[in-house]
Design a protein around this nucleic acid. Structure first.
Length: 271
DNA sequence: AAAAGCCCCTGGATGC
DNA sequence: TGCATCCAGGGGCTTT
């Protein structure tokens, strides 16, 4: 599933292609999560000035306005000089003078949305409640601890909610909690400053490692060249229910939290 | 205000 | 072999 590392891998794969490209046309397939919110005429002729990432959103800054792209659960983007005709799961082709940016998304949880600016209500709705970027200086252990103090929900669900820290989805939340030795069911507000510090370090380390190996490819994710990531080969707990812990050999446990599966080692993550 | 549950979607795995 | 059922899950929305 595209989480921060996968979205960042995508951004890095696109930046040299789309920066400075001029939009010629936009073709849409089946409906995505939300309507585009602008006429194609409005986009035609605009220059793509930058491509940024905020949480799991990609932001294409245009001359006027921006396009917000979310990969949902099964989306991936690729860019090429020319591409074959769109298949049944190709739901957006953004044609530019340099090539085509294509969104492939079988489950259609993804979205491409236009906003006039980041303060546009449409953009605020999607970006406004997002927490801090975990791979920046702004992600501070003391502030993290303060934010968690206000939350009584299980730490795993607080991480997934994305309003404290962004980009951590189901895979990396499970992996970071393992690395920090924290059980996913632990109430967020009960974590000490020291354990919060370990979690802070673990989130950064896990995301940075995943980014370094091209993200995780489970089912649908592919980078912009159609290639896969490799982090899934080294998960400590995610997807390993019943298998021995790589550290202590205890069988990895599976439980459900908020309709999502959670994996942990009952020995390495005692409380 | 926070938390919990719902729901969107479809391919692949599983069960009878 | 074929069909029904379940599951994966990001995250905005609604309800508690």
């Amino acid at each position: 599933m595209p989480e921060l590392p996968e979205v960042e891998v995508t951004r890095l794969g696109l930046v040299d292609h789309v920066t400075g490209a001029r939009i010629q046309a936009l073709h849409l397939g089946k409906p995505l999560r939300w309507p585009l919110g602008v006429s194609v005429d409005r986009l035609r002729g605009q220059l793509i000035r930058h491509i940024r990432r905020r949480g799991k959103y990609l932001l294409l800054d245009l001359d006027e306005g921006l396009l917000l792209i979310h990969l949902g659960m099964s989306g991936h983007l690729r860019f090429d000089r020319a591409l074959p005709p769109p298949g049944p799961h190709d739901h957006m082709d953004l044609h530019t003078d340099r090539g085509v940016l294509r969104l492939h998304d079988p489950r259609r949880f993804g979205a491409v949305v236009f906003a006039e600016s980041e303060s546009d209500p449409q953009a605020r709705k999607l970006l406004g409640r997002l927490g801090v970027e975990p791979l920046t200086q702004a992600f501070d252990p003391a502030e993290f601890h303060r934010a968690l103090k206000a939350r009584r929900a299980p730490i795993k669900q607080v991480l997934l909610a994305g309003d404290v820290v962004v980009g951590v989805g189901n895979i990396y939340a499970a992996e970071a909690l393992f690395r920090a030795g924290i059980r996913p069911t632990m109430k967020a507000h009960r974590l000490s400053a020291q354990r919060t510090g370990r979690l802070h370090e673990a989130i950064q380390a896990v995301l940075a490692r995943a980014l370094a190996v091209g993200g995780s490819t489970l089912r649908d994710f592919a980078n912009t060249n159609g290639g896969s990531g490799y982090f899934q080969l080294e998960t400590m707990v995610y997807g390993r229910a019943g298998e021995p812990c790589r550290v202590c050999q205890t069988p990895i446990k599976l439980l459900r939290q908020g309709q999502r599966s959670t994996f942990f080692c009952p020995t390495c993550q005692k409380f």
